[in-house]
């Protein structure tokens, strides 16, 4: 035991403390960078001037904005060993439920639309899933790095929060480009897109961030 203590003391060097504020700053920087690059290459939907009058667009922004904030907050806090992500994950679940209810209300006036297959438009839906997953990647990588640097003691819960945060951030960015505002379409395809990123984050991150 003494040998171990001696070697630990010999290995001691000053360290830069990890803080939640530092992590939040790094994430904020990435958000600004990714969003400006995405919009900078002309990805904004051409009808944005008209779409902003639609409640469905604001519902999309609010849903994915709030979920991304909740996911990021939960993830950052749970990188601290003494903080569990459980409460944050419950808040996320509640926010998803609330978003679906609000989506249902926003959807009501759109019931005159044609049949389900046309509304869901699976070709376009799969494209949305793919683009959202790609847009989620930079955030996922950054959060994985921060998670490795931190000391999460509930790795699976933290990985889930990281997955939700990255996925919903990707979806939030994609809202600027996606021309589909139908709440049914958004619930299904954005849901699938977010689930894909969340599932592989939940599966991989606990293995990559063992400590």
């Amino acid at each position: 035991m003494d040998d171990l203590l001696d070697s630990l003391v010999a290995d001691l060097e000053p360290v830069r403390r990890r803080t939640s504020t530092g992590d939040a700053l790094a994430i904020g920087l990435l958000c600004a960078l990714e969003l400006s690059m995405f919009l900078g290459v002309g990805s904004m939907r051409p009808d944005m001037r008209f779409a902003i009058a639609e409640p469905a667009l604001w519902w999309k922004f609010a849903t994915f904005g709030v979920l991304a904030l909740l996911g990021l907050g939960t993830a950052i806090l749970s990188f601290d060993p003494s903080i569990s992500p459980k409460r944050g994950l419950w808040w996320i679940a509640a926010a998803v439920a609330a978003a679906l209810v609000v989506g249902g209300i926003v959807n009501a006036p759109m019931h005159h639309q044609p049949d389900l297959a046309v509304r869901l438009n699976w070709r376009s839906g799969l494209q949305c899933v793919m683009v959202m997953s790609v847009l989620a990647l930079p955030m996922l990588v950054l959060l994985a790095v921060l998670m490795r640097r931190g000391a999460p003691t509930h790795r699976r819960g933290t990985a889930l929060a990281v997955g939700v945060a990255a996925a919903t951030w990707g979806a939030f960015v994609f809202v600027f480009a996606c021309p589909h505002d139908d709440p049914l379409y958004v619930s299904i395809w954005y849901g699938v897109g977010c689930a894909v990123t969340t599932v592989y984050a939940r599966a991989l991150l606990p293995l990559l961030t063992r400590w």
């Binding site: 630990l8 290995d11 001691l12 360290v15 830069r16 403390r17 990890r18 803080t19 990188f79 601290d80 060993p81 640097r149 931190g150 000391a151 400590w211």
Partner: peptide, 9 residues
Amino acid sequence: HEKRHTYDT
């Protein structure tokens, strides 16, 4: 030792 930087003083 490895995670000492995560302690918030």
